[in-house]
């Protein structure tokens, strides 16, 4: 069994509460992420998703626990973990290619001007922004800005991509085509991705694993849902698959009811935060299993 690329261990975040004491936003969050895996985190607003992503990025320190990469705790941001921010976060005084080149020269300081330009151009073409290289962010639409953000993250060829609701500010049409592009790029390059979303269909399209987080305060990982749709799913056709509704209803059910009643649900039952149950919703009865120590499913799927 392979070791996970990155592993979240016993992560917790607490803030001092008003009037003394502490509020625990989340605690005892354990999650291994394998190389090449696309993991989506779903949960209600305020449960601490962005905080977890920022800790993964090295931009924020947890109150407890750690993120382990290559057997060592991460101590800060790294070029190995590229972030696509919730707001695109482009530098407004730089052009499209300038923004990407800034990232590329950070990764490869020794590269010559022409090599950097060619590398940037490659990723500008990948996100279909050819012709807009010399525009400033203010001259771009929201979808185009988000594409630049994606190109900037991809261009440094990170070991892992961290995305915080990258499509939430876009209209449905732009979102659909961008999701499809990201899915294509990530499967082609076997990119490891950790993504936050509110959108169930987005998670079903993109993710291999969907991590469900309960409501805060005291949020935890309720279960890990494995995507039971075929790998070559497309937005236009995936709803025709036999497992589609089982998967969708399971996720919806969690967000609508189970996320707030989870404490009651697990009461008296064995629940190990280190190995949240793994669920594979399908047309046939749902299979439940626990993660082995290395984070891979312990038994074969039923569905």
């Amino acid at each position: 069994m392979t070791k996970p690329l990155i592993s979240i261990e016993a992560l917790a975040r607490r803030y001092p509460a008003r009037g003394g004491g502490e509020t625990t936003i989340f605690e005892n969050v354990w999650l291994p992420i394998q190389k090449g895996e696309f993991v989506c985190l779903i949960g209600h607003s305020g449960c601490g998703k962005t905080t977890i992503l920022n800790v993964l990025a090295g931009l924020d320190q947890p109150s407890g626990g750690a993120v382990i990469v290559d057997g060592r705790e991460i101590s800060g941001p790294s070029l190995d973990r590229a972030v696509i921010f919730q707001g695109h976060s482009l530098l407004p005084w730089m052009t499209v290619i300038g923004n990407i080149a800034f990232a590329v020269t950070s990764r490869h300081p020794e590269w010559g001007r022409e090599k950097v330009r060619a590398h940037c151009q490659k990723y500008i073409d990948v996100v279909h922004l050819t012709g807009s290289e010399h525009k400033k962010p203010a001259e771009l639409s929201g979808g185009m800005k988000q594409r630049v953000g994606i190109a900037r993250a991809l261009a440094i060829e990170p070991k892992m991509l961290l995305m915080d609701e990258p499509f939430s500010a876009l209209d449905a049409l732009t979102r659909g085509s961008l999701q499809d592009e990201v899915r294509r790029i990530c499967t082609e390059t076997e990119q490891t991705v950790f993504m936050i979303t509110h959108d169930i269909d987005e998670a079903m399209l993109l993710a291999d694993k969907i991590v469900l987080m309960t409501n805060g305060p005291g949020a935890k990982i309720a279960e890990i849902v494995e995507n039971t749709l075929p790998k070559d799913r497309r937005p236009a056709t995936m709803h025709k698959h036999a497992n589609y509704y089982a998967l969708r209803n399971h996720l919806l059910d969690f967000l609508v009811t189970r996320s707030k009643n989870f404490a009651a649900e697990i009461e008296g039952k064995p629940y190990d935060p280190r190995k949240p149950p793994v669920v594979r919703p399908g047309a046939k009865p749902v299979g439940v299993e626990t993660l082995a120590d290395d984070g891979s499913p312990r038994s074969a799927a039923i569905a």
Binding site: L59, P77, S89, L91, R107
Partner: peptide
Amino acid sequence: EWLNVAATLEVGALRKAFLVILPA
């Protein structure tokens, strides 16, 4: 956010000062 961009790209202090903070 701009400082976070510089941080995730592991931009050095001088480069950050001249290419991010100064223009901003």
